[in-house]
Amino acid sequence: MKPAPFRYERPSSLEEALRALEEAGDEGRVLAGGQSLVPMLNMRLAAPSVLVDVNAISGLDEIATEGEGEAEGEGEGDRRYLVVGALARQRTLERSALAASCCPVLPECLSVVGHVPTRNRGTVGGSIAHADPAGELPVALLALGGEVEVAGPDGVRRIGADDLFVGFLTTSLGAGEMLVRCRFPARRGAVGSGFAEVAPRHGDFAFAIACASVALDESGRIAGARLALGAVADRPLLVPAAGDVLGGSRGAEPALRAAAAAAQAAVDPADSLHAPAGYRRHLVGVLAGRALRQAVAKASEQLTKGGSR
């Protein structure tokens, strides 16, 4: 259980890292926190011949907000983002006051990502680029409708969460590209989010994960809802049907139950040792309901608190 030999590169700038990745081609892998990659190296499930350790690149660990409309009176369509650099550690984001105020669902879901020692080292960007279908952060990115910024030989581009996860452990990043920033839409106005999962023990891979984000209009009707699921498909899964069912409703129980049923209908989970397919499908309904209920409650709270702001 030791890694196969590899060439180790430790670039100190993004440009050097991209050059090393381009030279390595298919044989290169980015090493960030290493909390998913190193187990795969140890078990020889992965044996890249070049490892590009990006930990020495400075300026990639920022956690900040970005975007227009930070001042009062912003126009429609302006969005503010919580921007998380590729090297920001999961534990840092979990304890960030900025994350707690902009995207409270992130600290909540991070508290069940592995354990403190793996979160001290594991990065937010690495977890999203790894695209584990049972990872909490990819599900949260999808539910919040975030995006990632990737750098590559042709410059920098953004990929929306809806177009990012394309298969098992697979993203739409191209050859020689590297994720440099994750952008989570910051909470604004009557918006709320919810997170729920069931795992055999705290910190274990979950049997099923649900994360939801709900926006209310001034009259308290649902203007938009996004529900994402984890651990029940080959990739983190958005359930557009749940959003369709909820749109225009007041988020009352019958509508929430219909959305949860839509989530169940959208998945065809596999059997696993401790959770047969039927149980997982049952969990999807329960967890989707919990996440949506929590999101609606928090959005209503915001509506009563501050109107549309």
């Binding site: 180790y8 290493g34 909390q35 190193v38 187990p39 534990r91 403190v116 020692p117 001290n120 080292r121």
Partner: peptide, 13 residues
């Protein structure tokens, strides 16, 4: 000062 898994780090890191 932060707890980490030493089996998931390379010595060179």
């Amino acid at each position: 000062g932060a707890a980490v898994r030493s089996c998931l780090l390379l010595a060179v890191q």
